[in-house]
Design a protein around this nucleic acid. Sequence first.
DNA 1: CGATGGGTTGATCCGTATCAACTGAAGTGG
DNA 2: CCACTTCAGTTGATACGGATCAACCCATCG
Lengths: 252, 252
Amino acid sequence: MPLACPSASDASFATAVPPLTTHCSNCSLRDVCLPRGMKPSDVDGLDDLQFSRTKVKAGETLYHEGQTFRNIYAVRMGTFKSTLTLADGREQVSGFQMAGELMGLDGIADGAYASNCTALEDTEVCTIPYDQISGLAATSADLQQAVSRLMSREIVREHSLMMLLGSMNAEERLAAFLLNLSQRLKLRGYSAFEFHLRMSRAEIGSYLGMKLETVSRTFSAFLQQGILEVDKRHIRILDPMALKRVFDTRVH
Amino acid sequence: MPLACPSASDASFATAVPPLTTHCSNCSLRDVCLPRGMKPSDVDGLDDLQFSRTKVKAGETLYHEGQTFRNIYAVRMGTFKSTLTLADGREQVSGFQMAGELMGLDGIADGAYASNCTALEDTEVCTIPYDQISGLAATSADLQQAVSRLMSREIVREHSLMMLLGSMNAEERLAAFLLNLSQRLKLRGYSAFEFHLRMSRAEIGSYLGMKLETVSRTFSAFLQQGILEVDKRHIRILDPMALKRVFDTRVH
DNA sequence: CGATGGGTTGATCCGTATCAACTGAAGTGG
DNA sequence: CCACTTCAGTTGATACGGATCAACCCATCG
């Protein structure tokens, strides 16, 4: 199924675990994933599709730009980054995905993925064949709604990122990033105030539109101000309110 | 229907032209609008929905942030801007829409629009009630596909804007903006190389993440380089290739 | 006729990029 | 086991692009 340049670091089908499948109805992620907001009866419909699970190791890519679109993926475990390739070959991070979040929706438009998706650690995903789910959507208005809502949510998410990139300075950007991360972790049952970053300073910088040195300096500044404790990728938010204040005391 | 703070400059229903409706099948915009890529038989299904037309005068808003989501709108004539309101009340432009483009898709996620939509000139839109179209989508896989593709396209569009905001300098941004505009105008049968901007320097700047003075200076720089002729909002692209070169000779 | 709003241009300032040196941790191989 | 490399991260010095502040032009409008 991988059509375009399957490389050594390409996961695609190679690491598919045996015929291991997942049922949405009893999945621990059902409240943050595709079934979110669906009626139990419709979730049962999803169960029949038997989404297969795939492991993707750290550094491997799940799909890349231009590759034929067949599946949407839901993160089961671990963290991914989505990237876009610039004209000169460098890449820009367009998002980080964690448990329950969907990846690959940008492929629907033209039948080819518009971004690359790479695992930041050892991960596991549910593979959701698009023709199956759109087939089922034809019979269930509820599922169709769910998919539409998820796509719309993605649009809204990008809106706020645009806002961030268009009108915030370094401290505001990093504060927004950390608060967003914190909130998503909390939603998934992890601590909102102490966590481990899965991405490098360079990846954070690329996502936030700044250089890695600036990310590092900004972490140090927050440390200085007593807002954070930072030890490499281990972060502790000491003063969440101060972080929020940085974020919306946007003066310029 | 306008729930939140209906203001003097709020169009919503006030200026609805009599019971004037539109049929997609014989609409001149059918190739760039909702029916794009649909089978003629499915477009006929759309005809039964009888989308009503509404005029929105320059400066009036079609919908705003937080307002209950009911309709998607398709531009029939004229230009709109979509904006987001920042925490401190200032607004940031997130997009410009012209004939055939859809507005309001961000409202599906939570049942309320996530952005504001304002006419930049006297305009006309088709009002597409969301419940009607999603009802019809349940019976037509083709229409459902069309809507999904349009939403996905919106995601891809925002991707590229993020890229622009995250990693381009002033000249690259303005070049990308002008090339994008040029291409969309051409697609609609207008000249690709000579056109009238419907938005102010400040609005362009907000969209591109730079100040209005910088926009102005960058126009002047292009003028200097013989790439453009600029007279206020009237633009003539003299050297399209040079503009493309600016856009992808991204050095930093 | 003065007021207002969009646009241009100049002078200056500041935030972040850039370049560079350094640290510590984690391999790698003799 | 120790030199060696490599990579992520931090921190300092400096450069530069764009923000900011300000003056001015011009068209429109009450």
